[in-house]
């Protein structure tokens, strides 16, 4: 450990070095990405349902949401959510006559922003996957008397994932990298810690390169995970 620490220099572990702080930052990065993806998946499914709805107004709402989110820089969205969320929530609380005041922590604001972005892309993937399930199967399920809800739960939904997983894997990579934007609003994720460390130690290149290496490791592992998930989702399907 001693020799390793002297090799690592300012990136060493323990109280003198930044190694452990960087890893903790990386952990916050992963937590941010996981939360954003989870919420983004739920919101994305909801948006996909709106887009497939029979009602023009709902479709139109979902379409404009994705159009706006996908046309704006992620950085701008994050800043709007960060500075705007308190104002919006407190204004609505006052409107309902409540005296309570809510503060939105940076972590929550970041997750809110990133999952809103995730959802705007995920809903397209879900819609595509929904429509990709062969119509013949749906008809067959209806023919044997399954209710509409059951057709969805038993036939369509389980198969949607097979079509959705490659796209969602890409989105995971995007959200993982987008968490770095939180450094600008001073949330102590990986990049922000590297910036602090680099400035304190006067070794900016070392620290940013270390951050880059950690991000590369995370994306490499994600790539492996994605390959595994894609393979698994194809189990039992012939011709692929």
């Amino acid at each position: 450990m001693e020799t390793m620490n002297s090799f690592l220099g300012p990136l060493a572990f323990g109280s003198t070095g930044w190694g452990d702080d960087l890893l903790r930052g990386a952990w916050i990065t992963i937590t941010l990405a996981l939360w954003s993806m989870t919420l983004g998946l739920v919101m994305g499914l909801g948006l996909a349902a709106l887009k497939l709805s029979r009602f023009v107004l709902l479709r139109w709402l979902a379409e404009s949401y994705t159009l706006f989110i996908r046309g704006m820089p992620e950085f701008l969205i994050l800043l709007i959510v960060f500075f705007g969320s308190d104002q919006l929530i407190n204004a609505s609380l006052s409107a309902f006559g409540s005296e309570a005041r809510v503060e939105v922590p940076k972590f929550v604001a970041t997750v809110a922003g990133l999952s809103a972005i995730f959802a705007a892309y995920a809903c397209e993937i879900f819609r595509g996957a929904y429509l990709a399930v062969p119509a013949g199967q749906i008809e067959a399920a209806q023919a044997v008397g399954l209710s509409a809800g059951k057709v969805f739960r038993r036939v369509r939904f389980p198969q949607m994932w097979r079509y959705a997983i490659p796209g969602l894997g890409n989105l995971w990579m995007v959200v993982l990298k987008d968490t770095s934007l939180a450094a600008v609003i001073a949330l102590d994720e990986l990049l922000r810690i590297s910036k602090l460390g680099g400035e304190t130690e006067g070794r900016q290149l070392t620290f940013f390169a270390a951050a880059g290496a950690l991000y590369l490791m995370m994306t490499l592992l994600s790539d492996l995970g994605r390959a595994w998930a894609e393979q698994r989702s194809r189990r039992g399907i012939s011709g692929t």
Partner: peptide, 23 residues
């Protein structure tokens, strides 16, 4: 290609501007 696709753009910017620039 792998390095630039596998890391955030913000990290790349800061490596070049603050990192390399600090020399």
């Amino acid at each position: 290609v792998y390095c630039f696709r596998g890391t955030p753009l913000l990290v790349q910017l800061w490596i070049v501007y603050f990192g390399i620039g600090s020399f």
